[in-house]
């Protein structure tokens, strides 16, 4: 699917500018623990998280992810958004919980990476 598909599936809001929404994403990871995200190098493109701090963007950057979805309506501050925009990442915000957001994306074909 594309980042633009995630936007509509999760009824999400796009918070960054300039990130290409037509980029394809195939795999995702959902976690609030950044060390767990860093523990598995898989070619994942999307991070779904309820954690709201700059280390979320830095972690996603280390993993070459291109899209972060903040769940439960959490809105990152301007500093976090600037960090993401510098890296060409799309930041999305949805009111869905982590469980529901992951379930909706899975139902539409997005998968976890292979260990």
């Amino acid at each position: 699917m594309k980042i633009s598909d995630i936007l509509s599936i999760l009824d999400a809001q796009l918070l960054t500018e300039g990130a290409g929404l037509e980029r394809e994403v195939h795999t995702a990871c959902g976690s609030d623990m950044m060390s767990d995200v860093l523990a598995f190098v898989k070619d994942q493109s999307v991070l779904i998280t309820g954690l709201n701090n700059p280390q979320v963007v830095r972690t996603a950057d280390m993993m070459d992810m291109i899209c972060i979805v903040f769940v439960r309506g959490k809105k990152p501050d301007a500093g976090i958004l600037a960090l993401a925009e510098e890296r060409g990442m799309a930041i999305l915000c949805t009111d869905h919980t982590m469980f529901t957001a992951c379930g909706l994306l899975y139902a539409h074909g997005l998968r976890g990476g292979v260990h």
């Binding site: 950044m34 060390s35 767990d36 523990a39 954690l51 280390q55």
Partner: peptide
């Protein structure tokens, strides 16, 4: 609460 402290830091450093 900041997303770290899961006890994976040093093991990850060695692993990679």
């Amino acid at each position: 609460s900041l997303g770290f402290g899961a006890g994976m830091g040093l093991p990850n450093m060695k692993k990679y």
